[in-house]
Write a protein that binds this DNA or RNA. Structure first.
Length: 413
RNA sequence: CGGGGCAUCGUAUAUUGGUAGUACGCUUGGUUUGGGACCAUGUAGGCUGAGUUCGAUUCUCAGUGCCCCGACCA
């Protein structure tokens, strides 16, 4: 992508009503735009990051047998009345059409997937079954805040699993848990994301959250010093020992909840009477698990965690581009041609390049590169050519090195 | 939902009960080119409604919006 053609430009100033680090940096760099409180547009750079995150999640979901689907965001009222959540859930957006028909904007999809599965699955032979989607959710947050961390409209991956018995649910739950660990490792948050015991509601003792350490977090978690699994505030009040290893020495830290997984058992299959025939021809109620993970919140979390005073520092796996190619030219030099050649070369190698071909000062290009936070910065200038090539600098490092143009591709892959 | 704060060109800000100014951005022309360069040029603004007043962007009230603290958050 040529930066001269990129839809958004960076700003020098941040809107004064933004305080959170992720909102400030993402808006300043032109990744997102705020339409209203907790409602954002994803602009070209931001959308690329969001999609990278989504694709990492997809890959892992597919690995554990999830089939991707896409359910509607508009939900007829009667489905929500069946579970009692039309009145119970106070952050449900409710709308009415001209005929007076009432609908909800989906905040989660148990009410939709259960009837859907009921319609297509009648036999134990089709169970277990796993389906997931990545979709926009709506929740009427009374106080949305902190940029992408708590929105009223946000992206969410929700996986639902269907089982014949609890043992099968348990087994799959463990698989899903592991797949979440893989996801956070791949996204670059692995080391600071703790598996966290949370309340299991009325049907199981525990559920699990995935909590990423950050001062911007709303949650307080208690990390077991022995096994580094954490427990949340709620659980901390109920137990003195780590449910994982029995340790009793904890460290308190603030964290952002980036994922949660629940054993729903028959909480939703029962009200909808979701049953299949077993081997004996008897009807059995299916039991369920659900597994949530918010790509947009993850994106905000990454920014909160990886930044410095100059801007964002994207992990390679989710960066909008791998290389920020910068040309520094003067009127007499042939830099333009050199930079063009390198741009084409890198692209033909399948490397994602943001090419700063704009006619502005070097300082401004460097400042933008630091702000946008692409992992590799490659500078082409008279100075670099004179000493044999291009200058390569990693965003998270102070030093740069001269690399021969012919060796550039191997250097950055 | 309780409490607090804020509202002026696209962005950030200043001033004022009497012609609203500056910087950045953007236009055009020129000089520049290794850490947000310079000269010239043009561009655009008082959240909405009511009240007080000869006159309101400024004072009062209401509304709306945004931010923060708290509560809430399968």
């Amino acid at each position: 992508m040529r930066q001269s053609e990129l839809f958004t430009k960076t700003k020098k100033e941040v809107p004064k009503d933004e305080v959170s680090v992720n909102a400030q940096l993402l808006i300043k760099a032109g990744f997102i735009d705020k339409l209203a409180a907790g409602i954002y547009s994803f602009l070209p750079l931001g959308l690329r990051v969001l999609k990278k995150i989504e694709n990492i999640i997809r890959e892992e979901m597919n690995t554990i047998g999830g089939q991707e689907i896409l359910m509607p965001a508009l939900h007829p009222k009667d489905l929500w009345e069946k579970t009692g959540r039309w009145d119970m859930m106070d952050d449900l957006y409710k709308i009415k059409d001209v005929s007076g028909k009432e609908l909800a904007l989906g905040p989660t999809h148990e009410e939709i997937i259960v009837p859907l599965v009921q319609k297509y699955i009648q036999s134990y032979k089709d169970i277990p079954f796993y389906a997931y989607q990545i979709q926009t959710k709506f929740r009427m947050e009374l106080r949305s805040k902190s940029g992408l961390l708590r929105g009223r409209e946000f992206s969410m991956k929700d996986l639902y699993s269907f089982h014949l018995d609890e043992k099968d649910l348990e087994d799959y739950y463990e698989k899903a848990k592991n797949s979440y660990v893989n996801i956070f490792n791949k996204i670059g948050l692995g080391k600071i994301t703790h598996l966290t015991f949370a309340s299991g509601g009325s049907f199981s003792k525990y559920s699990h959250e995935f909590q990423t350490l950050s001062e911007a977090g709303e949650d307080l978690i208690h990390i077991c010093k022995k096994c580094s699994v954490a427990i949340n505030e709620e659980i901390k009040g109920e137990t003195k020992e780590c449910p994982e290893c029995g340790g009793d020495d904890f460290e308190e830290k603030k964290a952002i909840e980036v994922g949660n997984i629940f054993k729903l058992k028959d909480k939703f299959s029962k009200p909808f009477d979701l049953k299949v025939k077993n081997e004996k021809g008897e009807e059995v109620t299916l039991i369920m698990g659900c597994y949530g993970l918010g790509p947009s919140r993850v994106m905000g979390t990454i920014v909160e965690v990886y930044n410095d005073d100059k801007g964002m520092i994207w992990p390679q796996s989710v960066a909008p581009y791998q290389v920020h190619l910068i040309e520094i030219k003067n009127q007499k030099s042939k830099i333009k041609n050199e930079a063009e050649d390198i741009y084409n070369k890198l692209q033909s190698e399948g490397i994602e390049v943001l090419y700063d071909d704009r006619d502005i000062s070097a300082g401004e290009k460097f400042a933008d590169a630091d702000l946008i936070g692409i992992p590799y910065r490659v500078v082409v200038s008279d100075k670099s050519l004179k000493v044999g090539g291009v200058e390569v600098k990693k965003r998270d490092s102070e030093k740069s090195e001269i690399v021969k143009t012919s060796e550039l591709v191997s250097k950055i892959t």
